[in-house]
Design a protein around this nucleic acid. Sequence first.
RNA 1: GCCCCGAUAGCCCAAUGGCAGAGGCAGAGGACUUAAAAUCCUCCCAGUGUGGGUUCGACCCCCACUCGGGGCACCA
Length: 823
Amino acid sequence: MTTPQEHQAYDFAYVQEKWLPIWDEIEPFKSGRPDDPRPKKYVLDMFPYPSGDLHMGHAEAYALGDVIARYWIQKGFNVMHPIGWDAFGLPAENAAIKRNEDPRIWTYENIATQKASMRRYACSFDWDRVFNTCDPEYYKWNQWLFIELHKRGLAYRKDSAVNWCPSCQTVLANEQVVAGLCERCDTAVTKKKLNQWYFKITDYADRLLDDMKELEGHWPDKVLTMQRNWIGRSQGANVNFMIEGRHAPVTIYTTRPDTLHGATFMVVAVDSELAAELAAGTAAEEKFKKYRDSVKAASDIDRLATDRPKSGIFLERYAINPVNGEKLQIWASDYVLADYGTGAIMAVPAHDQRDLDFARAMKLPVRVVVETGDEDPSETGIATTGDGKLVNSGSLNGLNKVDAIAAINKELEASGLGKSARNYRLRDWLVSRQRYWGTPIPIVHCDKCGEVAVPADQLPLQLPDAKGLDLKPKGQSPLAAATEWVNTKCPTCGAAALRDTDTMDTFVDSSWYFLRYPSSKNSTEPFLRADIDTWLPVDQYVGGVTHAILHLLYSRFFTKVLHDIGLLGFTEPFTRLLNQGMVVMDGSAMSKSRGNLVRLSDELENHGVDAIRLSMVFSGPPEDDVDWSDVSPSGSVKFLSRAWRLSGDVTSKPGVAFANGEISLRKATHKALHDAAFAVESFRFNVAIARVMELVNATRKAIDSGPGSADPAVREAVEAIAIMLSLVAPFTAEEMWERLGHKPAIATAGWPVVDEKLLVADAVEAVIQINGKIIERIEVTPTISDAEIEALALANPTVAAALNGATPKKVIARAPKLVNIVL
RNA sequence: GCCCCGAUAGCCCAAUGGCAGAGGCAGAGGACUUAAAAUCCUCCCAGUGUGGGUUCGACCCCCACUCGGGGCACCA
């Protein structure tokens, strides 16, 4: 270490080394002492996955979270700003397979590395509350929650065609399939019929949708829109069609019951049981089977291509249209989805593009029942979906769309042929995984008693030792090979039974972790109600938009379930959400293969922690991506040195009366404090820093060519600069604070109280416009009235000359800023 | 195809219907210096993607379009 005397210039490496051990001693970010009278705030950063050391993305996210946490501390709040690790998951398991070692080792090593980096990065975390989701003390409560859901029928098993990643050799939730590819490894996802565990999130679809009202304005619109689309509620009707030669009718779902008279055929999903049943014993059966097999062989990618020509098979069966008794051909096709609605639709080619494409391909009739004013769909090939007057529709003729829907729904309901219905795009959450590194599902399968939950006093059900297990993906959970672990006794009847060998999706872990921080060390409950009522819901959540659907939707679901169970007094977990952008390089995401990877450790080495944090925060609005090729860390270093130098120039003593200071610098200081606070609260951190830069420039001038370094206003300004800088540049700020004669930690120094009287300017410049064009500027007092400023404007010689005797049509006065004279 | 967001100086970005420029980067010049670096000072640069509309007044609101980014996508 070098000595202070050697460092006339600002030396970030020296300052960093100097303060870390002192902060370790003071622990300025400990939250929640019982006697703490300050109001509380819960600021939460999305917890990291320990996949290696911290990278540029973490550096941005934690810099932003820190601005918010440190700001509220300065503002006098008792802030809880915790951190932990989302530590289960595939990367650890894959690394373990590669190195032939226990995933625990890799995981805990990475956690230690990241933790050390966070300390060096001066994150304002409360280190007393740390936990890792792979700790048995944590995942015990995953199991407890699973059992609570199981009790209430919200965790259940079913056979279903599930998303299967052939490379990861595990099932995937719908949310983890992106454009037909596994989100983790980009392998084309296939379908596999399996018996799997699900959480019944669909029971909460309406509430997940409707409760978003209270998040509006506090969450990014983008995220709310994405969640709405994902849930995809649609309002329509179920209608029963009789089938020739079949006892029971077939129910179809439609959002356009008004077009029922325009149905010219029926289509059932080729992979549905209904299709197989209808085809059985008909002349079309062989053709149908061949078609079905070809569809099943095709991947989701092919199926997702919407511009693909329509295909299908006529099943040689007929349905009867309930409203007009017409006989409709029944076709099987892959454009109808088996797991949406009832897997069967009425086709109205005139008013639905997909049906029209199919009708034209198969030479099926098209009948217009809504006069929209557009050209005939059978000629143009373009279905008319707009509103219009109903025709060829019996009792509905002459009505518009809305009235026709209401009328037909009433008729259907009266006759028992149908009723209004809702459908959702959202599916139940598939939570079982055939991999090792996750929470074991706490269920025992007994021949006599069926699915039996592991009793609470036997939790945690620990993962068996990885030693001796083959973790390689093979379609069956590696836990199945842990014979001693698998073979157990039924908790109910004591007979020999088998443990469930699947593990939970790691998104289960992250769906409630924010509830654990306030009571993270408690071993008898997942969270204490008293702590929850003190700290929750989270006041400010900060994280990447990549979790807009998955994590945030699941967390909202869990919160509602736990509320219903009576464990929480609120239904939305995150009051405010900030999504930071990504750190990119030359316009694209950083990656080794692209060769544009910037190493955080190099940047920190070259420019120092504060300069990197400052660069991240100053680069632009937090939601925007940071292009590292656009930012100038050396510019940040320059600014920080400039600010630091001010602290050495102040010659007045701490505690000097600021009221005697030079007035214009005092005004600049108070304006900066006021504006920066407002900017931080509205997430415009880049603007807040610009305000600090202005004040630094003004103070420099005051020292060099103004009232001089002894003026109390200079001390007031530099202290304000240090406090404002403490949000982004904690080392520099602390060093400045010491040079100003104060004791650490500046983090808890408190935001100076803004004197409203100093926010008012003595004189302001008002503009005078004629027809919106500026012709003169005048000095006015800020308290001038509209009438006074109007009089001043009209009396102004330049204005009088420009008017040249003309009478203004209208004069708009907006004191004290402007007067607009309209001729 | 549908939905959302964005477009301001060479570059990153400010300006919550009222003077387009707060701040920074890059660039130019000067002071200091034997010189350079550092530091300090000064300066340069656009009329807000395009076309309409509303308004006394539009970067800001409305309509249409262009380009860029993101989300959803055969959900009946």
